[in-house]
Design a protein around this nucleic acid. Sequence first.
DNA 1: TAGATTGTTAATCGATTAACAATC
DNA 2: TAGATTGTTAATCGATTAACAATC
Lengths: 209, 209
Amino acid sequence: MPNKIISMAVIRRLPKYHRYLKELLDNGIHRISSKELSEIIGFTASQIRQDLNNFGGFGQQGYGYNVGALYGEISKILGLDKKYNAILVGAGNLGQAIANYSGFRNAGFEIKALFDANPKIIGLKINYFDILDPEDMETFIKENNIEILIICIPKNGAQVLAERAIKAGIKGIWNFAPVDLKVPNGIIVENVNLTESLFTLSYLMKEEY
Amino acid sequence: MPNKIISMAVIRRLPKYHRYLKELLDNGIHRISSKELSEIIGFTASQIRQDLNNFGGFGQQGYGYNVGALYGEISKILGLDKKYNAILVGAGNLGQAIANYSGFRNAGFEIKALFDANPKIIGLKINYFDILDPEDMETFIKENNIEILIICIPKNGAQVLAERAIKAGIKGIWNFAPVDLKVPNGIIVENVNLTESLFTLSYLMKEEY
DNA sequence: TAGATTGTTAATCGATTAACAATC
DNA sequence: TAGATTGTTAATCGATTAACAATC
C-alpha cells in the first residue's frame, strides 16, 4: 500500500488516544462515540473522526466505536504489537530512572543493558541491568539485535555516540541529551528535552492570562 | 500593553532559539543573519524573522542580529530573568534525577525541597535536598513562596496533589505523571509524558521511510 | 553610496472544523 | 423503520513561506 503521509500533528495525538482508550477499557466501557470521546480527551469529535480515518474506518454508523477493537487498532498503528530491544547509554540518575520504569518493558520495549563510561560501575549489576563498557557497544548491538538507542549522557558525546550506534545497526534513537542529532535518512530520532519543556512552562507563567 | 497572542507553535520554538544562540555565543559568534541561523537551527529564515518580530524588532537591516542582545531578549521573553521556587513531589528515580540536574538551578529554578510519602525516607537528606512529608506540603508552599510544583508520582495521586498545591498558591505545574490534569484558569501545566514520546518513536520506526 | 538584510504584507499551504449524505 | 453516528467532502482558520519595500 502506498502509505498515505500522516502529519506529525496526528501522530502526536495517537498515544493520547491509546492512553484514554486503555482507561475506558479499564473502566469497563466497551462502546464510545466520537462525541463522548471528545468530551473526555479534549479534541473535537470531528478531529477524532478525521484522525482515525487516516488509518481505517474503525467505527460503525449509528453505534460509534468499539473501545477494545479501537484500542487494538491504535496499538498496532503505534507499532506496539512487536517487541523492541534497546540499550541505554549513560547510567546516571536519569538513565536509571528510565531503565527502571516498568511501563516501557510492559509495552514491549526491553532494555538489554546499560552502558556507562564510569569505570567504577562497569561490570556491576544495578537493578538487574548489567553496566557495560561503552567500548563494547557496537558488538553488543550486533549480537543482541538492538534496534533502539536511548541516550542519557550529556550533550557533548551524544552525536558521536549516535553515529557509532547507527553504524552498528540501530534504527531509532530516544534522545535525552539537549542537542539536535544529525542522522542519515531512515534513522528515527525522538527527542525529550527537559530544559525546553521547563522554559515553555516559564514562558507561560510569565504571561498574564 | 495589550499582549498579542502568540501561538504555541512559536512558543515551543523559543527555547530552541535560546539554546542555539547560547551555543553561538559560546563559540564567540556575535552577529548572525536569519539566513545563517536558519542553516544551523533548521527553521526557514522567513520563519525566524516572523517568530522574532512577534516580540520586537531585534535585528538591523543590512546587518542581521546581535547574538548576545538577541539571547538576552529571548531569555527575558522566556521569563528567565527571574527566579522561581519549586518543590518536587515523588522522590523516586525520576524525581531525584530531575532534582539533581544542575541545569535547572542555573537557569533560575530552585527546588526548595522534595516530598515523598515513603516514611522510610521522610526526614532524610538526599543530595542536599530535605525529604519532607507530603502532609506538610501546603504549609511549605505558603512559607517558602513556592510557585512551581513538579509532579513525579504515579498517575493516581496526581490530580488530588495538584489541587492541594493550587489551593496553597502554586501557579505552575511541571507534570511527569501520565495524566491530563484539570486545573483552573490561570494555572499553567506543562506535561512531560515519556510514554507518549516513546510511542511516537515506535510509530515512526514502524513506517517504511 | 551600494549591498545586505530586516520587518512586514501578501500568497500559499496545511490543519482543523463544519456539514451532511451514507449507513448501521 | 427511525434515530444515531460515522466517513468524508467542503469551508474555515491558522501557520508557514515568499516577496519586497524600508533602511541600516
